[in-house]
Design a binder for these strands. Structure first.
Length: 829
RNA sequence: GCCCCAGUAGCCCAAUGGCAGAGGCAGGAGACUUAAAAUCUUCUCAGUGCAGGUUCGAGUCCUGUCUGGGGCACCA
């Protein structure tokens, strides 16, 4: 590459161009929204980064996508909010601090500066004045404030429960952070621990989280919606009460089960409760007590992964009691087993072995009866060992006999409701969000524990509860309790309610709490009267386009949706969904695999930028494939992108007409290409087909080159018009090159402040078109016809065609389909 | 087991139900050059995973199926 300067004559040099523009952009302030109401507002946001080292290829892709949208909207005349910030609390900072005997803030803020510099080099058109960091006390003050509002409404609460525990990170994890039984962060198999932990009551919002997905349909990727639907896991059925008969000195009592198949009530032949529950202990008779205790010990020893294996033999213990079927009074033996889950439904089931595979496996293991109550036309489950769960006709079911499955379900619910022993019920798989963490570098939970008053919220005017800054290195090491517990000065305080000595809650919040509301803070990042200025939020939100990886399909996106709904109920926002549209960019792979240290296939972003330039890397990211597809860096060609950029840039040197030359006098053929490209690009951008826009842009550059070299020549004003269109469209993807081209064409900076070119409709219309003549759908002839030819005329012309006559070979014509001016299809008799 | 997404040229990818190819990569040839690089010009390559169906006409819509990717899963 030459080192000659960018603008003006000479060779294309990305390094010269990159050196030139950042200062200009900064001075012009083109990326700061006016927010004065003169233009329609639009908010585009990339998921903010975690500051682990420098930016990587994944950031480069995601932010290139978001920037295309931001820049396009700006050119289209919108007032665009495109902010940037950092999700700066989290474990890696703490681990680095332990290793270096430092404070996590040192590592965190140093990395933020590195990333900020890289973002500036990468020419993200962000409004830097709105920058925020979730680890700043000015930010987490409001995270705490929001926690307290949740607390007041009973949406933040503490409970003792078996929780997911990562034995490596020595902290608890939310269900969402356990992947295949392992810690999503470090991959260590998760164990269960019984602890008193803080939860957000997201389950109260399960229905709304599910229903409101209707308004996201078509704007969010279907697979993300599917994942959330799966995660929420709504199932419809019935709660049915079974009376458990008294036994010895144990009194009779009711136990409720949840079932999706109340139609099979007559097929229930036994009853199972989760072994690891109080219920099991309460129910077991004295004779069976030791057997149950032995069994519980064995279950405890199993890891989650072992326990969840569907291959495993069914195990269980008879509890010595009998449940009574509310429909027919039949006595069902009550068992405890680990295939029934303590925390789903009611922790107890009615077992219908004929029509549920798990129950059937259990029945066969313990020689329990199997009764078929639904005739599906399949073989008898008790013979085959295969439960029949499909459609069929109810049998052996008294008043339900003859009904279909659906009718049976409805009728059975009516029966139990009439008898007062059950009701229609909906059950969710979603669990409450466990938000407390036994780690240091997070938002402290603003609660004080007082021996007299119990849990006492820290008063709003005492927020933020800041982290102590005197803990370093080993003092931060995970010990299974929060490192904050060892900061005596910090922990010991007085009760805000009674003034007596009390202690602070020493857990910190899951960092997903911080990121559940940052998009709101961006509307008024310096606001000091609350988490956000509600008027600013009304002006800018919801986010019109959110961009980020599919790895947050459930975690961050579900949590943020939940927060938004709670905030709506609190009257702080007036919308239900925070992100109107979502774009999931694909991953950047190398050689078909995700880049990773262990595979040694990582590609360093900085090296790529040094080698090919920012614009070439950005262009490659966007051109490689549709935004949502993965980009395999081994399959793409940043050098090809660089070549194209140079080719586009050189157009600026060959335009020989003065700025402001009237394009109307220019070559019509080239003008048509230009205006068609503008029109198509617009449509493609609205449909987020960014890769295709670049293909179109390449065509325009090729056509312009040809016009200069072997056509009308560089002095034709159509060439200028084309080059200007190139600069503007290119600015979405390659801002440096586009800016330099724009300047070479004699325009003031910045191309970012230019307007999207208006399309002249009459240039899109071609005088003549090629009409295709088909016989029975096969092309037999082509005709040059006027674009405005009538159907009759076109039909007549087509029927004159020799090729058609030859193909018809004397056969008559049944019908002729005419789509003027492009197609005629002759259908023979 | 249930659900979602995707299969088009050697590769990445285009194609409002209407001529399968827009663009790029790779490859071949030529021009310029003492030569090379760069640049410019040009060429080659598939009938759309498979089987049916709807239609005048299917890569596109429907059904089934295979393959790949992803999510949920002893969830009653």
């Amino acid at each position: 590459m030459s080192t000659q300067s960018g603008n003006g004559q000479g060779e294309y040099s990305f390094s010269a161009i990159e050196a030139k523009w950042p200062a200009v952009w900064e001075e012009l302030g083109v990326f700061t929204p006016a927010d004065d109401g003169s233009r329609e507002r639009r908010y585009v946001l990339d998921m903010f980064p975690y500051p682990s080292g420098d930016l990587h290829m994944g950031h480069a892709e995601a932010f290139a996508m978001g920037d295309v949208v931001a820049r396009y909207w700006r050119l289209k005349g919108y007032d665009v909010l495109h902010p940037i910030g950092w999700d700066s609390f989290g474990l890696p900072a703490e681990n680095a601090a332990i290793k270096r005997n430092a404070h996590p803030s040192e590592w965190t803020y140093a990395n933020i500066e590195t990333q900020a510099a890289s973002f500036k080099r990468y020419a993200i058109s962000a409004d830097w004045s709105r920058r925020l960091h979730t680890s700043d006390p000015e930010y987490y003050r409001w995270t705490q404030w929001l926690f307290l509002r949740f607390y007041e409404r009973g949406l933040a609460y503490r409970k003792n429960s078996p929780v997911n525990w990562c034995p490596k990170d020595l902290t608890v994890l939310a269900n969402e952070q356990v992947v295949n039984g392992a810690c999503e962060r470090c991959g260590t198999p998760v164990t269960k621990k019984s602890l008193n932990q803080w939860y957000f009551k997201i389950t109260d919002y399960a229905d709304r989280l599910l229903e409101d997905m209707d308004e996201l349909k078509g704007h969010w990727p279907e697979r993300v919606l599917a994942m959330q639907r799966n995660w929420i896991g709504r199932s419809e059925g019935a709660h049915v009460n079974f009376a458990i008969e008294a036994a010895g000195d144990l009194p009779a009592r009711d136990v409720t089960v949840f079932t999706t198949r109340p139609d099979t009530l007559y097929g229930a032949t036994f009853f199972v409760v989760a072994a690891d529950t109080h219920l099991a202990l309460d129910l077991v008779t004295a004779e069976q007590h030791d057997a149950l205790m032995d069994y519980r010990e064995k279950v405890k020893a199993l890891s989650d992964i072992e326990r969840q294996s569907t291959e495993r033999e069914k195990t269980g213990v008879f509890l010595g009691r009998y449940a009574v079927n509310p429909l027919n009074g039949e006595k069902l033996p009550v068992w405890a087993a680990d295939y029934v889950l303590a925390d789903y439904g009611t922790g107890a089931i009615m077992a219908v072995p004929a029509h549920d595979q798990r129950d059937l496996d259990f029945a066969r293991a313990f020689d329990l009866p199997v009764r078929t109550v639904l005739d599906t036309g399949e073989e008898d489950p008790s013979e085959t060992g295969v439960a029949t769960a499909g459609e069929g006709t109810l049998i052996n079911s008294d008043e339900l006999n003859g009904l279909s499955k659906a009718e049976g379900i409805a009728r059975a619910i009516e029966l139990v409701e009439a008898a007062g022993t059950g009701e229609h019920a909906v059950n969710f798989r979603l669990r409450d969000w466990l938000l407390s963490r036994q780690r240091f570098w997070g938002t402290p939970i603003p609660i004080i524990h007082c021996a007299e008053c119990g849990e006492v919220p820290v008063p709003d005017n005492q927020l933020p509860v800041t982290l102590p800054d005197d803990l370093r290195g080993e003092a931060l090491a995970p010990k299974g309790t929060s490192p904050l517990a060892s900061a005596a000065d910090w922990v010991n305080t007085s009760c805000p309610s009674c003034g007596r000595a009390a202690t602070r809650d020493t857990d910190t919040m899951d960092t997903f709490v911080d990121s559940s509301w940052y998009y709101l803070r961006f509307a008024s990042p310096q606001y000091t009267e609350g988490p956000f200025d509600t008027e600013a939020v009304d002006r800018w939100l919801p986010v019109a386009q959110y961009v980020g990886g599919v790895e947050h399909a459930i975690l961050h996106l579900l949590y943020s949706r939940f927060f938004t709904k709670v905030l709506k109920d609190l009257g702080l926002v007036n919308f239900d969904e925070p992100f109107t549209a979502l774009l999931n960019q694909g991953q950047v792979l190398n050689g078909g695999k995700a880049m990773s240290k262990s595979l040694g296939n990582g590609v360093d972003l900085g090296e790529q930028l040094d080698k090919f330039g920012v614009d070439a890397v950005r262009l490659t990211m966007v051109f490689a494939s549709p935004p949502e597809d993965d980009v395999d860096w081994a399959d793409v060609s940043p050098s090809g992108s660089a070549k194209f950029l140079a080719r586009a840039w050189r157009l600026g040197q060959d335009v020989a007409s003065p700025a402001g030359a009237d394009p109307a006098a220019g070559d019509r053929a080239l003008r048509s290409v230009t205006h068609r490209t503008i029109a198509d690009s617009q449509e493609l951008l609205e449909g987020r087909k960014f890769n295709v826009v670049i293909a179109r842009l390449m065509e325009l550059v090729n056509a312009t080159r040809k016009a200069i070299d072997s056509g009308v020549g560089g002095a034709d004003p159509a060439v200028r018009e084309a080059a200007e269109a190139v600069a503007i469209i290119l600015s979405l993807f390659a801002p440096y090159t586009a800016e330099d081209l724009w300047a070479a064409l004699g325009h003031e900076p910045s191309v970012a402040a230019a307007a999207w070119p208006a399309v002249e409709q009459d240039l899109l219309v071609q005088a003549t078109v090629t009409a295709v003549v088909q016989v029975q759908g096969k092309v037999r002839d082509r005709l040059e016809v006027p674009a405005d030819i009538s159907e009759e005329e076109l039909k007549a012309k087509a029927l004159e065609s020799e090729h058609v006559a030859r193909t018809l070979d004397g056969r008559g014509i049944r019908t002729v389909i005419v789509r003027a001016p492009k197609l005629v299809n002759v259908v023979p008799a």
